[in-house]
Design a protein around this nucleic acid. Structure first.
Lengths: 229, 229
DNA sequence: ATATCTCATATTGGATCCAATATACAACAC
DNA sequence: GTGTTGTATATTGGATCCAATATGAGATAT
């Protein structure tokens, strides 16, 4: 369930639940997921089981389980006896994912706003500032997501968040590309402050609407810069 | 991509894409998924790799890949060295899933209505009738889902449908239980005809609203009959 | 009797090996 | 040259084997 946890009584030892330690397949899964959504592995690229197994100093078995899971998440596509390639999205599919996000994430925020503690809002403001202040494009994606995750976590809607996370995973590369576009980063930063302010004011409807605009705005900006359109 | 496909030129042979045939792990995955959502395997029950492998006359490797995928779908929970058990839902979690459905499925129908062909509507009416006429409670779940799937398919929103399908998977057992409740089946049948009629009239807003009511009504009926409340 | 400690067994996680298939390239026929 | 066929290699899918851990029954101490 949760990560490392320490006990108070008797033992002066930082203990942890060993049965919750990561298996090889989980480690490989997380690493591949990260590499895919960050674009280190590019769309269409083949995932060689052998090569990955060597990289992680393990056998192909955990690699195959990791790939099965990635397939179920829609991050790779596999063909029997041919292997797995990094999944890509057509412009229409990208649009659908953003539309899905624009439906779910406003609802998450709406539920989250009345549950936000002052501590959480403070943390969110810091992350928001860190995002706007950051000069390294490589970090923008992480900080952007970190800000959203913080706000969403207050909702305690685990399934909504699960779906939103997967949707974001599938378009994370495009989001990062969009941030780098002219004005992308500047606009995102501005919109983040607006969303945060609505949260601080406890205005759930406003925050919800701003998130929706934020997502649909990113979609528009992205589609306009796509080769096809 | 598509299933079996035949060629016209020269060959008078019904051919099929062999590389698209199911692997052992896929067969096991589908069978386990079916057994879980239909309730043949009940909540909390352990999945023994060895036993399943024997049942399908295969080794544990494909079974493990299948279980990895089920875990990613949220249908089982696994603990390292302890194995997988069929996932269950708390009343709060069940409620969240239904709320998620009530957000997504109305949007699917709204998009689907203007794209429905007369052939599809005819098929939907037949399925609707088959559902209402059916006397065998074991078949109700399948027919219910078949009706919804038919309508949704017209939307061509593959991701929305993917999410909805997973959400339905997670509460399929409860849906089946709800249908058996007093009035459950009768009411579902009645509501289906209403939804269908709205589709036939091309009234997307009406169909969307009726689907929403249909889902939230099922949620209410279910929560009232749950032990906790 | 209760609690703790072995230790045998069951079960999962992972490594290694073999089988089935894809892919690329050479040989060959025309 | 073009197109087909055979063959070698690479790669995936699956089986078998070993290692690590969990579980439960019995032994032992208090």
């Amino acid at each position: 369930m949760r990560g490392a946890q320490s006990y108070e009584v008797g033992m002066k030892l930082d203990s942890m639940d060993i049965s919750a330690t990561a298996s090889a397949s989980t480690i490989v899964f997380n690493a591949l997921r990260k590499a895919i959504i960050e674009g280190q592995l590019e769309e269409g690229e083949a995932l060689r089981q052998d090569e990955i197994a060597r990289l992680f100093n393990t056998s192909r078995i955990p690699v195959r389980e990791a790939i099965s899971r990635l397939q179920e998440q829609g991050l790779v596509k596999t063909q029997r006896y041919k292997g797995a390639i990094v999944a890509g999205l057509s412009p229409e599919e990208t649009e659908e994912i953003f539309d899905l996000r624009s439906l779910i994430e406003p609802e998450i925020i709406r539920t989250a706003v009345p549950k936000m503690s002052t501590a959480l809002l403070k943390a969110a403001r810091e992350k928001c500032g860190a995002f706007s202040a950051c000069k390294d494009p490589n970090e923008w994606g992480d900080l952007n997501r970190d800000f959203h995750d913080t706000l969403y976590s207050a909702s305690e809607l685990k399934f909504f968040i699960e779906i939103a996370d997967n949707a974001i995973d599938r378009v994370e590369r495009q989001i990062r590309a969009q941030l780098i576009l002219s004005n992308g980063m500047e606009r995102a930063g501005r919109e983040h402050f607006g969303i945060l302010e609505a949260c601080e004011n406890g205005d759930a409807d406003q925050a919800s609407q701003l998130i929706k605009d934020h997502i649909l705005g990113a979609k528009q900006s992205l589609l306009q810069h796509l080769p096809e359109s």
